[in-house]
Write a protein that binds this DNA or RNA. Structure first.
Lengths: 107, 107
DNA sequence: TTGACATAAAACCTTTTGGTTCTATAACTG
DNA sequence: CAGTTATAGAACCAAAAGGTTTTATGTCAA
């Protein structure tokens, strides 16, 4: 009944406000776990767990560089969630929906 | 850091696959709790709880009619989640993002 | 008014979530 | 090599999530 079955990990990743804030941070630029953690009041392991969940949802990609793990945003995953929601676009903006369809077709 | 603070109830509502399926059902037409429940393997109270969470996120609106509660989709709430995600659009489709901005401006 | 029906509400249970602290391990750096 | 740094990982905890069953309650229909 869920129109797109593999959206679960993404929506799960998006469910927590700290994780959404991390997404916003990483949209700016890639960061190490330590850099991300220093921006929040919670402990490093807590942030590491959030990052793992984001990784499971493919919302972030991790590059191991020496002893550092550099986390960067993978916007494609967010696109999946956005597309799920786009199915309902017609209910609140018929016009935008048509434009979107046009763009999808012609690109 | 979360660009839009009151998105939490919506994203929370969207986090569960059963609730997303309910959203899809109600997009079709409004339904009573019983009607919704009959489409799932879980019990009626479980569905009632899901509907309450959807209501808390303002994703559905409830009209009490006699002994029935008629649940209908409120797409505006989904729009809020979609808009949060739209901030990241430019990362995966620069062109669509510009079109969207245009639509917002001229309507 | 009596029974069936739609839902509410309480009590309870198990698993997951989001967090902690403490202990390792591996990699740079002087 | 020695010390510091970046992260991993285990063990643990409280609260929330998702579910159940059982018990009420209000409403419709005969």
């Amino acid at each position: 009944m869920d129109p797109m079955p593999d959206t679960q990990p993404v929506f799960r990743a998006l469910a927590d406000p700290t994780r959404r804030a991390i997404i916003a941070m990483l949209a700016e630029r890639p960061r190490t776990i330590g850099e991300v953690a220093s921006a929040f009041a919670v402990t490093r392991p807590a942030i590491a767990k959030h990052l793992k969940i984001l990784e499971e949802g493919d919302v972030i990609r991790v590059a191991v560089k020496g002893r550092e793990r550099i986390n960067s945003l993978n916007p494609e995953a967010l696109k999946r969630a956005a597309e799920w929601l786009a199915v309902f676009d017609r209910f609140w903006d018929e016009r935008l929906s048509r434009l979107k369809a046009e763009v999808e077709k012609t690109r």
